[in-house]
Design a protein around this nucleic acid. Structure first.
Lengths: 232, 232
DNA sequence: CGAAGCGTTGAAAATAATCAAGTCATGTGG
DNA sequence: CCACATGACTTGATTATTTTCAACGCTTCG
């Protein structure tokens, strides 16, 4: 019970009162997923809102050709599939656990009344959707205007910012991402990611290995994320 | 008055009753803009919701380096800056008229009560934001996975679908877009756009000229938008 | 008529993808 | 506990795509 509250009270729903929060926690469906499991699939009928209790979730889209791109990576206390929870549609993307994860979820019929009872929540939900929108716009912009190394640098900075941990020799990512994962997050190929990380490795900016990246020199990485200044 | 209602009643606000609609129309600020005028700028404090009465509006983002990308092109009866109208923020992008345009707008203080009085509107607004979100996700996906010609073909198809008109010899775009405009919509350069349009011109798929594109063979264009099948 | 803006095209250069071998960990089953 | 199979990563060579730079042509409009 206490565990349920930790994520709930740090989430979108933090605005509502203690009693309602507890009630919300008690009617939630609680699911534990191991790393790599699907939570829902692109195209499934969307009838639930999800909240991550612990762990990390990747939201991604697949082409008919099978190419995949990562739209977002979410962590503790983040809510996703908000819109599907409010209006009937189908999920426009797939959700997959990246680590061992516990997710809470509610059906639309359960969550609707809560929104009606607490109109402040609607504003908060709007704000959440708006911030996701803004982030996506920014990434769209990056993708359209920046070369791969800068996009990769920015992706790493976002990851560190979001869930950075003290690593062995630098700041770790808190997430075990393969080259392929990073490629899907930046719109490139695993080969290109590998080459760039190697280069940055020998420049002493970071250390990278099997599903592991540790940033040694954040300032340098921030420099690499900026508009191109060649310095060979 | 009649003019005001045409767009209002075909918009997001169509859900509310006649009297309220008329009242909403009467308190709107009405602005006429000539082609190329700014409606608001990225970074301005966001305190208004806009509705296009007639004309076309381009939403775009600029980098610090000055590179621009077009996030969306909107036409009659479409609402934009919805979120800014609900919660105080700053506009994450700029809006500019592409043709002679009439826009209606309301301040947050004016529109807030309307949303409270008609809770159905909140759902409709959510749905609107959700559909924009989905579209942006799709375009993000395209940008990450498709080569330029396919992106351009898809952009043209979207434009035709959205505001196609019967042209001289084929289906026109209803919008006078320069090569530069098309480049900013597809995340490439004006040169690449020019080359591709030239090629499609000599293939008989379309005719293009100064700020003008007419599709002759929609089916062919749809083919070009699909996964690559070489046919030299 | 001239200037400005838009468009085209060629050639060169840069960027990134693709293909093809590899190496190096990691963990599993014998 | 070790051998080995597997998955992850690296790197070189080649190719494809796209950008960049530069020059020039065509319209439109004052």
């Amino acid at each position: 019970m206490g565990t349920v509250h930790r994520a709930l009270s740090r989430s979108l729903f933090s605005e509502i009162d203690r009693v309602a929060l507890e009630q919300l926690g008690s009617i939630a469906r609680v699911e534990a997923r191991v790393a790599g499991e699907q939570i829902f699939l692109q195209g499934d009928p969307a009838d639930r809102v999800y909240l991550i209790e612990t762990g990390q979730v990747r939201l991604s889209k697949v082409t008919d050709v099978g190419e995949q791109i990562v739209v977002a990576v979410l962590t503790d206390a983040e809510v996703f599939a908000v819109i599907g929870g409010l209006r009937p549609t189908t999920y426009p993307l797939s959700a997959e656990s990246m680590t061992d994860t516990v997710v809470l979820s509610w059906r639309r019929e359960q969550i609707g009344p809560v929104f009606r009872a607490y109109p402040e929540l609607v504003g908060a939900a709007m704000e959440l959707v708006a911030s996701r929108m803004r982030e996506l716009q920014d990434r769209y912009h990056e993708l359209a205007t920046l070369p791969v190394p800068q996009r990769l640098a920015r992706a790493l900075l976002r990851l560190v910012d979001r869930c950075g941990t003290d690593g062995d020799q630098g700041i770790g990512l808190g997430l075990r991402l393969s080259r392929q994962d990073l490629a899907e997050m930046t719109g490139t190929t695993l080969y290109t990611v590998s080459r760039i990380l190697s280069a940055w490795g020998s420049d002493g900016v970071l250390i990278s290995g099997r599903r592991r990246v540790e940033i040694l020199d954040i300032a340098a990485l921030e420099g690499l994320a900026e508009v191109s200044e060649r310095e060979d």
